[in-house]
Simulated scan of single mutants.
Amino acid sequence: MPDLWLPGAEIHDLGDHAPTDQQYPPKAIAHITWDRNATAAAPQDWCTFDDLVGYFTGSGAGNAPHLVWDPFSGRTAQLFPADSRSKSLLSPPESPTRTNRAGRVVIQIEAVFFPYCRYGGAVYPRLVDTPCLGWDRLHAWIASWGVPDLWPMGRPTDFSDHRDEGVWETRGGWYAHAHVPFNDHSDPGSWPDFTTVPTIPPPHQHPVPPPEPAPARYQVTINGLPYGYDARGYQVTAVGRGLVSQGFGGHYHSGPGPTWTDADTENYADYQRSLGYAGQDADGVPGEGSLRRLLGYVPGPRTVSTAHVVAAARTDPGAEQGHRTYGSEAAIVEQALADEGLLEQRWVDGSFGSRTVAAYAAWQRRCGYSDSDADGIPGPESLHRLGAARGFTVTD
């Protein structure tokens, strides 16, 4: 099976994957972002790749393609795997096909470009006038999914549209947005050829730096839990929140969340460098030492001993500031209290101190306890209720 994710692309998985309609032939759809209206007489500065990725991973997620492609540097971001539909096409109820799904694959590419954009001091009327860096890699990956090197309605050469439902339903290949039935856009206006790939920038363009290396994409296991790309679980959220609280959240467009993405790796690499690590020791995948320094404890499986939590609640408040009797288990309870809105996130640190005791007392009152039964020292019944509400297991 071909790669679901374009090798070398920056991965910003939006989730919300959905299958395509396999009875139709495979397709690729060519778009340009066309985020500004410029003319030959009034060119405008190019809108950056990072800005467009930020849009599609934020407020524009409902219109997101599979791929965002920067033809000036070759950088590419992928938002959906190849076997999922994406969301850049109109698909009204009157359409005979679900246009975003009408193929064994329906891979949609948004080139970060608008006509007469100005980049590096030069003005580019058409997409094909740009260097089209990265096109050969992108094209080869799409071809690996069985999309033939054909334009069933003609390769786009201008901004006129042509839509034919019969061709759309029966022929695989490349389609301009201007070719898709029941859509009203007329982009992309031009598209690079399948065989001729520009490799030399046009005159008067400043040199374009090569794309940065892709973030590390491997996992490690620490105390029974995974970390690194595509790791999932509460510990990933805990790391992300810890990074944000320490001022290392600059790569997040949303989140942090329970699935480890490239943004987590990049933020963690910034944190590692702040500790003096370098090279492979600062590749953004945690080690036990840096993880403990970030969180103050090492997360463990989501199982909490009532006896341990009670001991922490009785010991930590009177001990030295930040003392952790059972840090990983206390942190699970603290995070649950924070998720219930009873404890500030910054106090989720594994130390069952006075603020955590007060938050737990508030939870006990929420459960209907009062007076000495709401003293902030966990009891089995209230702890089981918190575990059931927030997804952790309680043992005696």
Rank of each mutant, 00 (worst) to 15 (best):
E165Q: 13
P198H: 14
E165C: 05
L4G: 08
T99Y: 11
N223D: 14
G60N: 11
V348H: 01
H384S: 14
P81Q: 03
H251R: 06
R217A: 15
P211T: 14
T325H: 02
P7Y: 11
D129H: 15
P211D: 11
T33W: 03
E165N: 05
W141N: 02
P201S: 10
Y277Q: 11
A64M: 10
D281I: 04
P213F: 15
P256Q: 11
H31E: 05
F194D: 02
F113E: 13
G240L: 12
T325E: 06
L275N: 01
G391P: 00
T306H: 14
S305Y: 06
Q345A: 13
E10H: 13
G350S: 03
L295S: 01
Q23H: 10
S351A: 03
C117S: 11
G233H: 13
V128S: 02
S290R: 00
L90Q: 12
V128M: 02
P2I: 09
W347P: 01
P301W: 11
L294F: 09
A263Q: 01
S290C: 02
V123A: 13
Y360Q: 01
H12M: 01
D184W: 07
I109V: 10
T57Y: 13
P148I: 04
W46S: 14
D339T: 05
P192E: 14
A362N: 06
N100K: 11
D396W: 07
L133Q: 08
